[in-house]
Design a binder for these strands. Structure first.
Length: 502
RNA sequence: GGCGGCGUACCCAAGUGGACCAAGGGGACGGAUUGCAAAUCCGUUAUUCAUGGGUUCGAAUCCCAUCGCCGCCUCCA
């Protein structure tokens, strides 16, 4: 099986062949850090984190770069509003963003460069483009001349002269053509000094697109493998990156362009300025969501859908997904009860146990487990179909539960069969790890104190007495009253367990 | 106006020409289990994939048209 990736450039699924054998370079457009990040800013990193994990699993050596744009009109505006410097604002927002990514299990980013740290490279690129007659200086600004790039528009499949010029016309006083875009912007007198950089054209700062071109080639080379971002970046941002990079270096820029679907509210994308949308966006802030839902649930939600499709993060949806996730947590708890071993610690998996298993039922079980893994990998090979892959995970869970049910492992002690079930769980965890799921025991939002534990022991003991005395009305009353406190009791053969939440 | 995408059950969602079945999750309803529950397992819940044509031995999947929704062309992950 070979990996296929949908490439926006060709509008087709293509077999993935890296530029350099064995190595993969990935560049993902990160946020402009001027206000708290929303869930949409985490979607790309979560998806590409899974992409990197999968490529690593397939044996590639992956380098993944996510940029932070920390010099920009919006930052200047927002910093002025807050009465702080641009770097202070950028730093604060970036720190929050990084903390959220950390929580979300996005650990694979190798480099996170700041635009402000690559001013030298940006200026050099501008100069080179000017020397190639692809850019021109105009009143302290530097513009890229779109007419210098014969295949401009190849990513978004559009022709510049057929587009509505719109408000772009207004800001084009210095431009030769409305489609031209700024590589360098001259400083305005009222702008703070920390965003005024020296350049051959006077004080100023980079335009929007060039920092990505510079940083991508700096870390990954002039030609690299995968460039990603939200669908809304296809035009003009990525189109312009291609134009300036390929004109500057004379070689292809990124080989594969992957664009993720956008987060929506209802049927609308989240980034409109009407008040209702703004209010809902506030709810979808990363900080806010992480305070309401577990990071693993958010990650699970993102990956439950194929990355090119739009996603909505409604409470109803998150709730339904959370119930699904519980299936896995319960399976792990059950394995722990049966084997006494921590399923989150590494242990023997089906591969290791495979050859030593005998017995028809046992062998069938091992084979079924390995078959699920094969189907999981097949889904991932098909343009990182994480939604399909998660479906396979659910089926595997059902398969393992069925085995334990049929073998009555909850009540019957059979170390050999229990080990088998535990091995299947290990195999499940090893593939789920490609999605960054089930790496550690879920943290219950309201962890119980020692006193609560002790009180629960007392209550359960009292109820157990009532049950053995057949005072079921009393036993049920206790259970109902606890349920009202969001505490669930589960009477199992070996005793009563309790849990908070569902 | 130009370019692009989407429409699969009550909800979310995979599948994008075939060789057994349109995955899976949530919900609902039955059954096993349980003192009753919870959890788990089993079964039911789309002869059908927005609609109408067409291509094909064969289509949810390709083509055309229609309807509906959305994105980009201006800052946006």
């Amino acid at each position: 099986m070979s990996l296929k990736i949908y490439n926006t450039l060709t509008a087709n699924k293509e077999i993935f062949v890296p530029v350099r054998p064995g190595k993969v370079g990935i560049y993902l457009c990160g946020p402009t850090v001027y206000k708290p990040s929303h869930i949409g800013h985490a979607v790309g990193p979560i998806i590409f984190d899974a992409v990197k994990r999968y490529l690593s699993y397939k044996g590639f050596e992956v380098t993944w770069v996510v940029n932070i744009t920390d010099v920009d009109d919006k930052l200047i505006e927002e910093a002025a509003k807050q009465g702080c410097t641009v770097p202070e604002l950028a730093h604060r927002v970036t720190e929050n963003y990084l903390a959220a990514l950390e929580q979300l299990g996005v650990h694979g980013i190798d480099h996170m460069p700041l635009a402000s740290e690559h001013i030298g490279g940006i200026i050099a690129m501008c100069e080179r483009l000017i020397s190639r007659n692809a850019a021109y200086v105009s009143g302290g600004d530097v513009y890229f001349d779109v007419s210098a790039d014969a295949d401009y528009g190849k990513l978004s499949h559009r022709k510049p002269d057929e587009q509505q010029s719109g408000s772009r016309e207004l800001a084009s006083g210095q431009k030769r053509n409305p489609g031209d875009f700024a590589l360098w912007k001259a400083a305005k007198p009222d702008e703070p000094p920390e965003v005024q950089f020296d350049s051959p054209w006077g004080k100023g700062r980079p335009g929007w697109h060039i920092e990505c071109s510079v940083m991508a080639s700096h870390y990954l080379g002039e030609t690299f493998d995968i460039h990603g971002g939200g669908m809304d970046l296809i035009f003009p941002h990525h189109e312009n990156e291609i134009a300036q990079s390929e004109t500057c270096h004379g070689v292809p820029f990124a080989k594969y362009w992957m664009h993720n679907g956008l987060t929506r509210i209802g049927t609308k994308k989240i980034s409109k300025s009407d008040p209702e949308m703004a209010r809902r966006m506030g709810e979808l802030t990363l900080g806010n969501l992480l305070s309401k839902y577990s990071a693993e649930l958010l990650r699970f939600c993102v990956l439950s859908t194929q990355y090119r499709r739009p996603i909505e993060f409604s409470d109803e949806d998150l709730d339904a997904k959370r119930k699904g996730l519980e299936t896995f947590y319960r399976l792990f708890e059950r394995i722990q009860r049966i084997t006494g071993q921590d399923p989150y610690a590494s242990g023997t998996d089906l591969d290791q146990i495979h050859s030593s298993v005998n017995g028809e039922v046992e062998q069938a079980f091992v084979l079924a487990g390995l078959n699920h893994r094969a189907r999981f990998l097949e889904a991932m090979d098909d343009d990182f179909n994480t939604g399909g892959a998660i479906g396979v995970l659910f089926e595997l869970a059902g398969c393992i539960n069925r085995f334990m049910e049929e073998q009555r492992l909850d009540t019957r002690h059979d170390a050999r069969l229990a080990t088998l079930a535990a091995a299947a769980v290990q195999t499940m965890r090893s593939i789920a790890a490609m999605l960054g799921l089930f790496e550690q025991r879920p943290v219950r939002p309201d962890a119980s104190s020692g006193l609560v534990n002790q009180l629960m022991e007392v209550i359960i003991a009292v109820r157990a007495q009532a049950r053995s005395d057949k005072q079921f009305a009393l036993a049920d009353l206790i259970r109902d009253r606890l349920a009202a406190l969001d505490i669930r009791l589960e009477d199992r053969p070996e005793g009563t367990h309790w849990r908070q939440g569902r």
